[in-house]
């Protein structure tokens, strides 16, 4: 029990002298100031602190690599990948020259925001790539003579998006891509079936509205949706897709 008063006395005793000192600042000792040299020889204080070698020291490969790695958006852990389900009106060019025939179109879209690989802000935020499968089908004819046709559109289409404001998850985009259209039909006459199928080159272009708001402040997942007007040049036929997509992106 005698130890505690001794320790207290020691601590308090050590502090008491400081409390007794003056409040005036104590300057650092920086050595002689440049203007304080009064002698006739070289001013030793003006010498650079770096290596006097005029070529400087070369970077090591590790240092060079580290310097070249962009740290821009190092704090964005998202992958820039998304997937959507599509649905809308597929307006297939009318063979009989009467505009277009309306059908239901649906499909799947995978998206990669490949602009994330680029440092430039505009490209970083604007470029993305779609891999799309869109499907539509049509049946026409009489009870005796009819045809069922399936259309499968496969495209790979880069796009460029302009956000509504800097950092906005909403924007408008334009797109141009290529792919292939798989057509398969079955022509039926009195129960006898004749299958016809083939692949045609496909050109895709269009515009749309795209949104990718965060699902939560803490998470990485984003709700991805679109409203789009897309045209397909299927061989020499012109089809139109007016639809929407809904999915998720990380």
């Amino acid at each position: 029990m005698r130890l505690l008063p001794a320790l207290l006395a020691l601590v308090l005793g050590a502090a008491l002298p400081a409390l007794a000192q003056s409040d005036a600042p104590i300057p650092y000792d920086d050595g002689p100031s440049p203007g304080s040299y009064q002698g006739s020889g070289p001013d030793q204080s003006a010498q650079p602190y770096s290596d006097p070698d005029p070529h400087g020291r070369e970077e090591t490969p590790v240092e060079q690599h580290d310097r070249e790695v962009s740290l821009a958006r190092f704090d964005d852990p998202a992958k820039g990948l998304g997937a959507e389900l599509l649905g809308g009106a597929l307006l297939i060019d009318s063979a009989k020259g009467a505009g277009s025939d309306r059908h239901l179109g649906f499909g799947v879209r995978l998206t990669w925001d490949f602009g994330r690989m680029m440092a430039d802000d505009t490209l970083h935020n604007g470029l993305f790539l779609d891999l799309v499968w869109l499907h539509g089908s049509a049946q026409a004819g009489t009870t005796t003579v009819f045809d069922s046709t399936s259309y499968h559109y496969f495209t790979l289409a880069p796009a460029f998006e302009l956000p509504f404001a800097s950092g906005s998850p909403f924007g408008i985009y334009a797109q141009l891509g290529v792919g292939a259209a798989l057509e398969s039909s079955t022509f039926t006459v009195n129960g006898g079936e004749t299958p016809v199928g083939g692949i045609k080159p496909l050109l895709q272009y269009g515009i749309g509205l795209r949104g990718r708001p965060l699902l939560s402040q803490e998470g990485l997942a984003r709700l991805e949706f679109r409203v789009e007007l897309t045209r397909f040049r299927r061989g020499y036929m012109n089809d139109t897709y007016l639809g929407a997509g809904l999915g998720i992106a990380y």
């Binding site: 020259g97 049946q139 026409a140 004819g141 045809d147 039909s185 016809v196 061989g235």
Partner: peptide, 16 residues
């Protein structure tokens, strides 16, 4: 604007 699938030298109608 007839829509065909060409096989060899024959045009096959691709829809009704």
């Amino acid at each position: 604007r007839g829509s065909y699938v060409q096989k060899d030298d024959v045009l096959w109608p691709a829809d009704f």
